[in-house]
Structure formats: structure tokens, C-alpha cells
Write a protein that binds this DNA or RNA. Structure first.
Lengths: 251, 251
DNA sequence: ATACATTTTATTGTCTGACATTTAATCTGG
DNA sequence: CCAGATTAAATGTCAGACAATAAAATGTAT
């Protein structure tokens, strides 16, 4: 592990990269203790604050954890699915919010991915998963639910569908796609009529899963995607109309 | 933006969270300049090194960038697809290497996702994308190629297929799945015979894409997945045999 | 000898203050 | 008006200190 003191890059960034590379290469294994901050400072010939900045960078990526006290220190962290999941949701959410991704593109991606795991879900669905889906459908049918709560329930419903595939890697990859869509979905105001329609489509999905009927499930998802896009378009249009009216007034 | 000085959590972690939440909530917008480190230190009532550790955490997640000099400082970073992509690859790779994910599970996830975007790719394929796929197939057919180079070409080929869907969100989500598999794929030793088979299957895929024949493309991908798993299983078996032999000798 | 309380020690967390480096803005002389 | 020198503001880095924590070592009483 070496750094170049003459490089224009931050020393802490270089040190973080050196350690990260060592972890990726397997030179540092899970739960292994790194040298203490002072030792690292000596090794890289920098000050302790600089080493600490490097370690904080790695901690931000969940690559290490630190413990205080005697026999404490920084340890290589076993990256858990939940940690990776949380990071992916944050990243995906910001990515969508900062890059002017159209609703259509995001929606297409989400449903394409969801349909990818649908056949596996249909095959392997568990009673637990079915119960979750039914429970969320029931919740979505209750009046007085806020739009946010409705969307949250929607996410839970779809997560159950995805997790039903029984493939942790797949669940992890899809988590970002499904959850990152939520802020966009929250823009939609769900009328009683549209909620009714969505509940009906969700019921179709749950039925198809229960019947382990993959083609029917795929068809139901396609219908739901189409309906979601329809709703979003009407929202966009009403926004545009309002903007146009405003424009008209000021003119 | 506030922190709790009595919390047991690191101050730098709290500050990072406060700023991160502000970015996610949209209180800090892209390219907006954060207060200087000294000002942040005053605001949170901590020292400058503590603020710096917090900022490095955010920099590690590509949420901010820093610039030196007058009128420099920390700016909210527009998260680019490439940055998010790179992070996802790192995370996914470590996730697989640290969690004893079986080849079958990873492979299933990868091909399920890839098949998800296949219909879109078939519909929207560009001449450029087709050219890339053909070029990589040609490279894969050349003798003297190392296993690593063969795998790298494989990744490029599949990326072309994925990018062909013309959906950046989808490409981003799939990037991790495809690239993270590479270390696992690198374990396989490709015989001349198996390379030939893979090239043939890749040709089927390219032909299906060119013909914009989605069902044919899906079928080709299913065959490739089955063959990939077959190869991996033979590798695992030969490993087990060798281990058994070793065991026998020492006994 | 063992269980419990105390002390020691190693380590991270935080602070203070200073200097180095970089870069944009400002000033100054031609 | 322009080019170069100067200034100022910001991050990058360093050194040394102290606080907080938690494990290990030590002492002590039963």
C-alpha cells in the first residue's frame, strides 16, 4: 500500500483508495483489524488527521467500522445486503432527482426489472409473501389513507413481490429501482377512482402469484405499468396547464 | 441542520447525515456552495477537523466536491450516472465476494435482469451497438486470448446489449449485476471448446438483436445462462475432486 | 482459587492553532 | 486597456494535546 506525495490528489483520498484496493483485492479480509491511526500515519508518512479523513471516507462506504478503547481500531466490515441496499436507495434516489430523468424512463426501468423477477416469484412464492401482498392491498383500499401512506404501501407490496423471487442478489438490485421511484410517485395525487383501479390491478397480481401463473402475472404487471404512466401523464398535463394559466395571467 | 452533542454517535457522522438529509430533501440544490469549513464548524459548534471528516464522508459518496482557493469550497455535486455506476460496481463486487453468494444465485440474478432489458434492446438497437457486439464476438474467437481478456470482452458484449435498451436508469441498475459477476466468471477456465460454444451463443444473440426478434433473443439468453451454469458447475466439481484427492493423500 | 473491584493502557474522538497551497479577485504600472 | 504582481479566502496538511472509551492487567477480599 503506497501513495504518491507529489500527486495533486488529496492525500486522504489516495490513502482511502490504497486501503480500498487492498480490501477489494482480498489483501485485507473481513474482520481483520487495520493498523492503528498512528501506525497508518507513520506508514504513509502523513499526519493522523489525514489518516482519519481517509478512514472516514471508507466508513462512509461501509467498508470499515471503528471501535474505541483498548484493542479497538478500524476493522474491515462485512458488507451486508442491508447496508448495500440502503446505499443503493440513496444513490438511486439522488440520481433520479438530480438528472431530470423522465417519469417514463424511470417507470419503464422499474417495471422491466420487476417483470424480470416475476416468473421466479410466481414459482417460489411463500404463504408469508402472499399474506403481505394481501394485507397491503387491503390497506390500500381503506379510505382516509394519505397519498404518502398509499405510496409507502405500494412500495411494500412491490418489495414483497420482488423478494418472493427468493434471490437476495436480485432483491438488492431491484430495491433501488423500486424505492427510488417513490418520490416521483408521490407527485401523483391518487383519486378514489384511481386507487380503486390500482387495487384491482394489485389483486390481479396477487392472484396470479398465488396461482403461480407467470404469464398472467406478466400481463398484470404490463397493465399496471400502463396505468401508472397514464396517471403520471395526467399529472404532468395538469401541471403544464396550471403553468400556462399562470403565464397567461402575468402576461 | 442540527446535531445532538450528547449522542454517542460520532459528531462527524451526525454532521454528514444532517448535510446529506438536506441534500436529499432538496434544501441544498446542485452546485450550491456549502458554507466554508470554518463557518460550518461555528454553526455546529465543533472544530474544523470534525467538519472536515464529515465533508470527506460526503465526498466519498460523490455527494459533494471541493475546490481550493478563493471562492472555492464544498459544492453539492450533481450525481452523474458514471459516478453512481462506479459506486454500484464496487459495492456489488464486494457484496458478492464477502457474502458467500453462490454462483447459481448470482447467475440467475444477472440473467433475469439482462432478459428484462432484452425486449427493449431488440426494439431499439442501434448500428453502433450491433457493431460493438460483432466486434467483441470476433475478439472472443481469436486464439491466444487470456481468460481475463475473454471475460472482459464478455462484459463489454453484455453491456452493449444492456445499453441497447436506450434507458440510462436500466443501464445503471444492470451495470452492477453484470460487472460484479466478473470475478466469479474469472474463476472459470475457458477451454477452446467452451469458447467456441459461447461465441456461437453470442452470435445467436447478436443475430436476434439484429433481426429485432425478442422471443429468439430471450431463448438465446436462456441457453447462454444454462451453459454458463454448466461450465461453472464443472469448475466447482473439479475443485471438489481435487480437494477430495488431497484429503485422501493426507489421510 | 475465584469473583469482583480497581488501575492501567491502547485506541479512537475531538480540539486548538498554525502553516502550506491553491486560486480567484484586486490592485498597479505601463 | 492589458499584463503582471499582490492580496485574500478557502481548502489541505501538520503537530501536539486532551477527552472518552473499553479491554486487559492488576490487586483484593472472600
Amino acid at each position: 500500500m503506497r501513495i504518491d506525495p507529489d500527486s495533486t490528489v488529496d492525500l486522504s483520498a489516495q490513502i482511502a483508495k490504497a486501503i480500498r484496493d487492498a480490501i477489494i483485492a482480498g489483501d485485507l479480509i473481513v474482520d481483520q483489524r487495520l493498523p492503528s491511526e498512528s501506525e497508518l500515519a507513520d506508514h504513509f508518512d502523513v499526519s493522523r488527521p489525514t489518516v482519519r479523513e481517509a478512514l472516514k471516507r471508507l466508513a462512509a462506504q461501509s467498508l470499515i467500522r471503528t471501535q474505541r478503547g483498548a484493542s479497538g481500531g478500524a476493522f474491515v466490515n462485512r458488507l451486508r445486503f442491508e447496508d448495500a441496499y440502503a446505499q443503493q436507495v440513496t444513490t438511486s434516489t439522488l440520481l433520479l432527482s438530480m438528472n431530470a430523468v423522465s417519469f417514463d424512463v424511470a417507470c419503464e426501468a422499474r417495471y422491466a426489472l420487476e417483470r424480470a423477477c416475476a416468473p421466479l416469484s410466481a414459482e417460489r412464492r411463500t404463504p408469508d409473501q402472499l399474506a403481505t401482498m394481501r394485507a397491503e392491498i387491503h390497506r390500500q383500499g381503506q379510505p382516509g389513507l394519505t397519498d404518502e401512506a398509499f405510496c409507502a404501501s405500494d412500495v411494500t407490496f412491490h418489495r414483497a413481490l420482488v423478494d418472493g423471487a427468493g434471490n437476495k442478489v436480485l432483491s438488492y438490485q431491484l430495491a433501488g429501482a423500486v424505492e427510488a421511484m417513490q418520490p416521483l410517485m408521490n407527485m401523483i395525487t391518487f383519486t378514489a377512482r384511481s386507487r380503486e383501479e390500482i387495487v384491482a390491478l394489485h389483486t390481479d397480481i396477487a392472484n396470479a402469484v398465488e396461482a403461480q401463473d407467470a404469464p398472467k402475472l406478466d400481463a398484470a404487471l404490463i397493465k399496471l405499468e400502463a396505468y401508472t404512466r397514464l396517471l403520471a401523464h395526467s399529472v404532468v398535463k395538469s401541471h403544464e396547464n396550471r403553468a400556462a394559466e399562470k403565464e397567461h395571467k402575468t402576461a
